[in-house]
Design a protein around this nucleic acid. Structure first.
Lengths: 209, 209
DNA sequence: ATGTTTTTAAACATGCTGTCCACTATTAAT
DNA sequence: ATTAATAGTGGACAGCATGTTTAAAAACAT
């Protein structure tokens, strides 16, 4: 005894897939409700018996995806050395690869960036919490403002993830790219042994140029 | 002998300001051409004698801003130690502070993220060029893929810039926040003296969790 | 003062929206 | 297999935004 009618499940899935496919083809602003129902092979009236408008459908898609990602991440975020293992980022990249098209819609900023903003805000909040918790646990004042740190870390992930999802063909494995990301975030692009160029002149700032 | 009629200059500026203000209030999708002309106190027909539609106006705004930023950045990008001084990032943050509202519109992803994508793509291309040039000049193979590096660096900047521009009141000075950003990018959040938490267990990856 | 360019209101056809209706098809449960 | 409930459908509707065109008025440069 399924709680949901088989028809509604089918309809919602069809609408979801149609929206995602069409947005990738023509952009969110370029498609109408009728375009969606036509692609899904459904009557236009059916759309409105499930969602109030295009935005509501997109919101639902994003909410479902976030919930799925959160449930996948939840166990990983309880581990003691979060932020050093790279497991959560890897898990996010894997999830994104599985739901590639939906992620592309979100990361492109379709829907006037609302979905992307919400996505990044959720990730940033989680990151800030982890960073803050660790700082308190070790009784240490972080060198860098925690809000800046969290935004930067998430911005990095999201920008690289978008590039990675849009690249054709995938140039790097999820493992390789997340490893680079973690490596970069932990140690920076300048490394003591000079792998990535010369060091800044002094101990901090104020180089000649 | 001004090259442009005084009226067209005035009209374009009014339309530009009206669009930016309204987008911040109601979102790009939530405003009509008539809303814009009403706010600008102009006839609706006037709009169409300057731009084909809302998108064209937004594109123009973004193009103007990019051109202004590029001309400001150009001299800084010729300096030998670019990427270590932090001057270009600081200049970008200053420019953004001056044109705060327009930047907010872009960075929020209004217009289905097109403006933001173009902005980031332009910055990433510039960054990749600098990184690539330096790697070749020093005859060194960068530890991290240059495309990943460029996207990560730009993603970091943009995410923090957005947070900084939206924060009320401004919690950090442009100098302070860009210094953190550069610091973070060069040396990472983990630092040999353990400022930001424990080091990863081994020399690289593969921690217990 | 004059010829040029810009701004304007009004009217128009077109297309999308969101709602409603009566009707049909599918479903889950008996 | 029958049935009662629920979901899907096509059609019609008013409302609204779009983008174009017109002829007249206003602002402009010289």
């Amino acid at each position: 005894m399924p709680q949901e009618d088989r028809r509604t499940r089918r309809t919602r899935r069809l609408l979801r897939d149609a929206l995602v496919a069409l947005v990738l083809e023509r952009g969110y602003a370029g498609i109408t409700v009728e375009d969606i129902t036509e692609r899904a092979d459904l009557g236009r009236a059916t759309f409105y018996s499930h969602y109030t408008d295009k935005d509501a459908l997109l919101s639902q898609i994003v909410a479902d995806l976030q919930a799925e990602l959160d449930s996948r991440l939840e166990p990983l975020l309880r581990a003691p050395s979060v932020g050093f293992s790279g497991k959560p980022i890897l898990e996010m990249f894997r999830h994104a690869a599985e739901e590639r098209d939906a992620y592309r819609v979100i990361l492109r900023g379709e829907g006037d960036g609302r979905a992307l903003r919400e996505f990044m805000e959720a990730r940033s909040a989680a990151a800030a919490m982890v960073f803050g918790h660790r700082a308190r646990a070790m009784e240490v004042t972080p060198r860098i403002d925690i809000d800046v740190l969290a935004r930067a870390w998430v911005g990095e992930q999201v920008a690289v993830l978008r590039w990675w999802l849009e690249a054709e063909p995938q140039p790097l494995s999820a493992e390789a790219v997340t490893h680079m990301l973690l490596e970069l975030s932990l140690r920076g692009r300048y490394w003591a042994n000079g792998f990535d160029g010369e060091p800044p002149t002094a101990s901090g700032e104020g180089s000649p140029d």
